[in-house]
């Protein structure tokens, strides 16, 4: 009895000591601060991604749990011409839209970086396409491209440039061009404003130094602005490519992938197969097939970023 009595307080104090140590341990505290964020990420990102990967290996349908079928879904897709068409459409859509968004966005950013009256107002106005809900702008475009009431067709007819309305969303290539244009319209502000932010970090004295060094306006852009902007270009274009590649809303609101699948992107096809047709496994496989493309896009910009030696801190030897 006496032995136990003697031991108990010791154990308590040892426990209390451990608790004290734990309480003052910054890593332990940091862990708890991290838990909510990690919880969100696991619940809403990692779990759906894992579930999607798993579904793509099953023959699950809506209302019926599937069983493991291995790579059967992928085999099926590899013979599916509509799937390959959607891959082609997605690549075309992403490439053309991204290139034009970059060019127009950079041009706009350079323009907005100049001194001009109502600068703040104009900069705010540029953001409008980005702020308008996608579906709303899609509906507006839907009207602009309408087979009968299109304002573009109407204007061109009044100018006697065409004799009949253009069937913007009814003809395959016109439809592709139309949705790409709508995507560019929505995406340019993001690129322009981000590049403008980048431009504003370039010290004006660099331009002055370049002017004194004899650089023309084009040379100042080519040798000063552009190289200094490359890091932010890499970031903004990675995001732009990712957003464009995974675009769903705009297409779905305007064409639903039509006409004859001419504007089906991988995301819209995946939705159609998985939700509308109920073939969850196949839809998941299409969505999963997007992953390699996205990883490649990120990889390119990542390695692009790493090549810039001048940005990285080096040995500061005096």
């Amino acid at each position: 009895m006496t032995v136990v009595d003697a031991r108990a307080p010791l154990q308590v104090s040892a426990l209390a000591g451990a608790w004290q140590r734990l309480r003052s341990n910054r890593n332990w505290l940091g862990f708890w601060f991290m838990v909510p964020a990690a919880g969100f990420l696991i619940l809403f990102l990692a779990y759906p991604l894992g579930l999607g990967l798993w579904l793509s290996l099953t023959d699950a349908r809506i209302g019926r749990g599937g069983s493991f079928v291995g790579l059967e879904n992928y085999q099926w897709l590899s013979d599916d011409s509509v799937f390959w068409l959607s891959v082609f459409n997605t690549l075309l859509y992403t490439f053309v839209a991204s290139v034009i968004k970059f060019a127009v966005g950079l041009y706009l950013a350079l323009l907005l970086n100049r001194h001009m009256p109502f600068k703040a107002l104009i900069r705010a106005a540029v953001l409008i396409p980005f702020i308008v809900p996608t579906v709303l702008s899609a509906i507006a475009f839907w009207w602009i491209y309408d087979a009968q009431f299109s304002i573009i067709s109407w204007s061109l007819r009044k100018l006697h440039l065409i004799s009949e309305n253009i069937n913007f969303l009814g003809d395959g290539n016109w439809a592709r061009a139309s949705v790409i244009f709508a995507n560019i319209w929505r995406g340019v502000p993001f690129v322009a404003i981000t590049l403008l932010a980048g431009l504003q970090t370039v010290s004006p004295s660099l331009y002055e130094a370049a002017t004194l060094d004899g650089a023309t306006a084009w040379q100042r852009f080519r040798y000063v602005t552009y190289p200094l902007l490359t890091p932010i270009i890499a970031v903004v274009m990675t995001f732009s490519v990712l957003f464009t590649f995974t675009d769903f809303q705009l297409i779905w609101a305007m064409t639903r992938g039509g006409p004859v699948n001419a504007t089906h992107l991988m995301a819209t096809l995946s939705y159609q197969r998985a939700i509308l047709s109920g073939r969850l496994g196949e839809g998941a496989a299409i969505a999963t097939a997007m992953i390699p493309f996205l990883v490649a896009a990120i990889g390119i910009s990542w390695f692009g970023l790493q090549q810039r030696k001048w940005q990285q801190g080096g040995p500061n030897n005096d």
Partner: peptide
């Protein structure tokens, strides 16, 4: 034009091109 004046300037913040 500045480049024709045949002058060279040293700036307060040096204005070195960081990428060169």
């Amino acid at each position: 034009h500045p480049k024709e004046r045949d002058i060279a300037m040293v700036f307060q913040n040096y204005a070195l091109y960081p990428h060169m």
